[in-house]
Simulated scan of single mutants.
Amino acid sequence: MQENPSHNEKIARLTFAGVYPHYVTKVESKGRTEQELKQVIEWLTGFNEHKQQELVDRKVTFETFFEQAKLNINAEKITGVICGYRIEEIENPLTRQVRYLDKLVDELAKGKKMEKILRV
């Protein structure tokens, strides 16, 4: 799948608040918890539970969300395919960061052990 500017712009405009409930639904439908989801988000972004809620309440875009994040040093170890894209080949930094988060949520929903998800 080829990356394109309109796709990248669409991702930048998405709000974290708009996507977060879908993440919760996905992980809970597979027997995982919202608390585990929050742990995964904190690992990737550095945002604790309070900060995550603040960002949801403020309805920040993914662009703002990741501008404020301090990405985990091991985030580059997140590889593979998500939504038809090979993460390590995504050139746009914001799109790649959003796909990192999508991949972690997917791994959580698929029942991967937390140590593997957090690249410990």
Rank of each mutant, 00 (worst) to 15 (best):
W43D: 09
Q68D: 11
I73S: 07
Y100M: 05
E36R: 02
L104A: 10
Y85G: 01
K10S: 14
V24E: 03
L37V: 09
L104S: 08
I73F: 06
A109K: 11
Y23S: 07
D106G: 00
I78E: 06
E54N: 04
C83S: 12
G31R: 10
Y85V: 05
K113I: 06
V60G: 13
E76P: 02
T64N: 14
N8G: 07
Y23R: 01
H50L: 13
S29A: 12
E88F: 10
V105Q: 07
G31E: 10
E115Y: 12
K59N: 13
V60Y: 11
T95C: 05
K70W: 02
V19K: 12
N72M: 02
L108M: 06
R13K: 14
T79C: 02
Y20L: 14
R119M: 08
V56I: 15
V19Q: 12
Y100P: 13
Y85T: 11
G80Q: 12
F47G: 02
K110L: 11
V120K: 11
E76K: 09
T15D: 10
A109V: 05
V81R: 08
V120L: 09
V19C: 08
N92W: 03
T33Q: 07
R119A: 15
L104H: 06
E28F: 01
V60H: 06
V19D: 02
D57K: 13
E34H: 00
H50Y: 09
K110V: 00
N74W: 10
I90M: 11
K10E: 05
K113S: 05
G84Y: 03
E76N: 15
V60N: 08
V24W: 01
R119S: 07
Q52R: 07
I73P: 08
K51T: 10
L104D: 03
Q53I: 00
K59Q: 13
V24I: 15
Q97D: 13
K110N: 13
K113C: 04
Q53G: 04
K38W: 01
A17W: 03
K51C: 03
N72Y: 01
K26M: 11
V56L: 12
E49P: 00
G31F: 12
R58K: 15
M1G: 12
E89F: 10
I90F: 04
R32L: 07
Y100D: 02
V105D: 08
V98H: 09
L37C: 03
A69Q: 03
R13N: 15
Q35K: 15
G18H: 11
Y20T: 06
K10F: 11
T79E: 10
V120C: 00
T64I: 13
P93I: 05
N92I: 03
K51L: 06
Y20H: 13
P93V: 04
Q68Y: 06
M1E: 09
L14W: 14
L55T: 01
L44T: 09
H22G: 11
E67C: 04
A17D: 10
A12Q: 02
K10G: 05
R13I: 04
T15K: 15
M114S: 08
K103G: 04
N74A: 08
Y20F: 15
A12S: 15
Y20K: 13
N8T: 14
L44G: 10
Q53M: 12
K26N: 14
E28K: 15
T25P: 00
Y23E: 09
Q35F: 09
W43K: 09
R58N: 14
Q2W: 07
L55P: 00
L118E: 07
E63Q: 15
N8P: 01
A17V: 01
